[in-house]
Nucleic acid binder design. Structure first.
Lengths: 347, 347
DNA sequence: GTTCTTGTTGGTCATCTGTGTCCCACGTCC
DNA sequence: GGACGTGGGACACAGATGACCAACAAGAAC
C-alpha cells in the first residue's frame, strides 16, 4: 500500500544504499549493474516501508505525467459520454495511464472550453481527448494543438486533427438492410431535423439501400421531427397515416422509435406483426426495455473512446504520427443489434 | 494560453529580475515587498511569454496537487454516475480543483479496488471521493484512509468514514404521499428483491405512510421482483390481478414503473385514469418519455457529488474535520418530480 | 612485488520547475 | 552611527532521474 510519507530517500537509508541505487533497482534500468543482493535489500526495504513512487516528482523529472486529459461534453445528459469514458479509462489503465476529466457543455463558449483545456495543460497532461456528445462538426480551442490530441465522435471544423467517428452510412445500411432482408418493400424513415452529419448520411443511406434493392428510394416516405420521443410519435403518426402505409420503419434514433411504438399502439398496429421498427443508438435503457425489444444499431462509443486513447498514447510515446492520421477521420463500425421488433410483413 | 515550454525562469530573464521575485509577484505573497513597477514588468513579461504555472512543480513543493480522485463504480451502466461526476466536477472547478477519475466495478475484488485507490495515491491526490452506483453497504479498501475521503451514495461497512446518501425514507414518503393526496385508498407497492437499504426503507415508509393515513399499512399489497422492466411487469400483473385491485401503484424504480405501464396497457387500464403510478429515480430517459410522463422521486446524485466534493475540499484545506462528520451519514432529500401519472381515483 | 588495466558496483551531482525562508544592500531618520 | 524600513536576491528544498564518476578487487604487464 502506497504510503504518502515514504520517499526514495527513506528506502535508501533503510537499505543502506544511495537514492540513485534505489531508483535504479526499482526502475530496473538496463544500464545499471547492481548485485542481486543489493537488489533484494532495496526491494524488501521498499516493500516493508510501503514505498510507492511519487508520480509528481517522476513526472517533473521525466517530463511525462502519464496522465491523459479528457474533456467531455455533457457528461450527465446521455449514457454516451459514460461509454466513451469507460472505453478510455480501460484503454488508459491497460497502458498505465490515468485520466483527468473535465466536463464542458456543448453550448459553452470557445473561451470557456479554452480555459478547460488550459487547466489540463497546466497540469501537464501528456495528451488530450476531446469528446463530444454527438457526431458533428465542432470548433476547437486553439490551445488544444499544443499537445497530442484526438477528437472523439466529431470532426473538427478546421480539419487537421485526428478524429474517430461512427460509420453513419454503414449503420444506416445495416438498419435498412435488416428491414429489406425481412421482406419489406414499403419502408419509411423517421428522420431528425438537426443539421448534423447523421441526419444527412442516414437519409442518403436509406434512399440508396432502397434503390439498390430495386425499390424507388427517392419516393420512399420520410418524415422529420425533433429527435425526441414526442417527435418520433408525431412523425410516426404522419407516416403511418399514409395510404401506402409502410410496413417497415427506420427511426433516426431509439427515442424516436419509442415514440413510434406509441403511435403504432394507438393505431392498433402490433409490432412486429403489423409494423417492423428499427432504431439507432442502442440506448439500452430504451431499446432493451421496450416491448418487444427494439432492433437497433449500436453506436461504438466504447470503441471510439478506446481507439482514441490507444492511438493518443501511441502518439505520446512516439509510436505514431498523429498528423498522418489527421487527414481523414477514422470510421468505426455500427453493428446491428437484433432484438424482436422486425418480422416479415404480413403477406 | 499556457505554453508548455515557458518556465518561471524565462519570465525572470525577460523581466530582468530573479525567479524568486517572479514567484512572489505571481503568487501575490503577502510578505513580499515589491515595487509596483517591478510587479508590472513581471506581469507583462509573463503575459507576453504565455507563461502558465507548472502545477506539478508547485505541487511537489507545496505538497498540494489540487487534484481530487474519484473512483466511480460502473460509470457507463447508469446515468447516475454521470450526475455524480457532474456535481463533483462543477464543485471542484469552482474551487480550483481538478478531478482524476477511475472506473471500477461494483463486483470488483477488494484487491483491484485497492489498486485503483493506490493509483490515485501515487499521483498524490489531495482527497478521494468514492462513489457507488446505488445506495448500499460497501466494503472499502483500507488505503482509502490515508487521505481525506468521502463516500458517495453508500455507507461503509466498517463505519467511520464520512458519507452522503439519499433520503430513502423521505423520498418514499413523498411518493406514497402523492398517491394518498390524490385520494387513493387502495395503494400497492412493487418492490425490489435485492437486499439493499432502499428495499427495506421504502417498504417501511410505504407501510407507515398508509397507516398514518388511517389505512391498513400492514395489509397493503406488495409484490417483489428483480428491479428491471420485466420484473416490474410481472409484479404489476400479479398486483393488478387482485380482487381489491389497487388504484395507486408505488414502484421501486422507474424501470419497474415502465413494466407496470405495459401491464396496465395489456389489462386495458389507462394511466392515470384507472391507475395512478409513481416511480423512483427520475431516470429522465424513462420517466420523461413514458406516456403519460411518470411522476417520480429524484435521487440527488448531482447534489451528493457536489456535497461530497465541497466537504472533501473543506477537509483538505483544514476547514472541516471529517472524522466528526463520519459518525452519521449525511442524508440528502429526494424531491418529488410531478408529471402526469397521478390522478384522483375514479369515484 | 609493484603498478597498470579493467570490470564490477555504486555513488555524486546536476536537473526538472517552482516555493519560501532568510539574508543582504542601501537609504533614511533621530 | 545605530535602528529600522524597503526592495529584492541566494539558497535550500520538494522527490525523483540519469549521465558520469569513483572505489575496489582481480588479473595483466613489467
Amino acid at each position: 500500500m502506497t504510503n504518502k510519507n515514504i520517499g526514495i530517500k527513506d528506502v535508501a537509508v533503510a537499505a543502506g544504499v544511495s537514492v540513485t541505487t534505489v531508483s535504479h533497482v526499482l526502475n530496473e534500468v538496463s544500464y545499471a549493474r547492481i548485485s542481486p543482493e543489493t537488489r533484494d535489500k532495496v526491494k524488501s526495504a521498499a516493500e516493508q516501508l510501503g514505498y510507492g513512487p511519487n508520480r509528481l516528482a517522476q513526472a517533473l523529472r521525466t517530463q511525462r505525467t502519464g496522465m491523459l486529459g479528457l474533456v467531455s461534453e455533457d457528461i450527465a445528459t446521455t449514457p454516451h459520454a459514460g461509454r466513451i469514458i469507460l472505453g478510455a479509462d480501460e484503454a488508459a489503465k491497460a497502458r498505465g495511464y490515468g485520466l483527468m476529466i473535465i466536463n464542458t457543455s456543448g453550448s459553452a463558449s470557445l473561451e470557456s472550453r479554452r480555459a478547460d483545456v488550459d487547466a489540463l495543460l497546466e497540469r501537464r497532461v501528456d495528451g488530450i481527448l476531446y469528446a463530444t456528445m454527438y457526431h458533428r462538426n465542432v470548433e476547437l480551442p486553439a490551445n488544444l494543438g499544443s499537445v497530442p490530441s484526438v477528437l472523439v465522435d466529431s470532426v473538427a471544423k478546421g480539419g487537421n486533427i485526428t478524429a474517430v467517428i461512427p460509420d453513419e452510412d454503414g449503420g444506416a445500411r445495416a438498419a435498412v438492410g435488416a428491414l429489406l432482408e425481412a421482406g419489406h418493400t414499403r419502408v419509411g424513415f423517421i428522420n431528425n431535423t438537426d443539421d448534423v452529419p447523421a441526419t444527412r448520411e442516414r437519409l442518403q443511406a436509406f434512399r440508396t439501400m432502397l434503390t439498390e434493392a430495386g425499390l424507388d428510394g427517392d419516393a420512399a416516405p420520410v418524415e422529420s421531427e425533433v429527435s425526441e420521443v414526442h417527435g418520433g410519435y408525431e412523425a410516426a403518426r404522419r407516416i403511418l397515416a399514409r395510404e401506402d402505409r409502410p410496413t417497415g420503419l427506420f427511426c433516426y434514433n431509439d427515442r424516436m422509435a419509442m415514440g413510434a411504438y406509441r403511435a403504432a399502439a394507438e393505431l392498433g398496429l402490433s409490432i412486429p406483426g403489423d409494423l417492423s421498427v428499427v432504431g439507432f443508438d442502442d440506448q439500452e435503457l430504451i431499446a432493451a426495455n421496450l416491448h418487444p425489444g427494439l432492433t437497433t444499431v449500436a453506436l461504438p462509443h466504447y470503441e471510439m473512446g478506446a481507439w482514441a486513447t490507444e492511438h493518443l498514447i501511441d502518439a505520446v510515446e512516439g509510436k505514431t504520427d498523429l498528423t498522418l492520421m489527421a487527414l481523414h477521420p477514422t470510421i468505426l463500425g455500427c453493428p446491428l443489434v437484433r432484438r424482436d421488433s422486425i418480422a416479415a410483413p404480413r403477406p
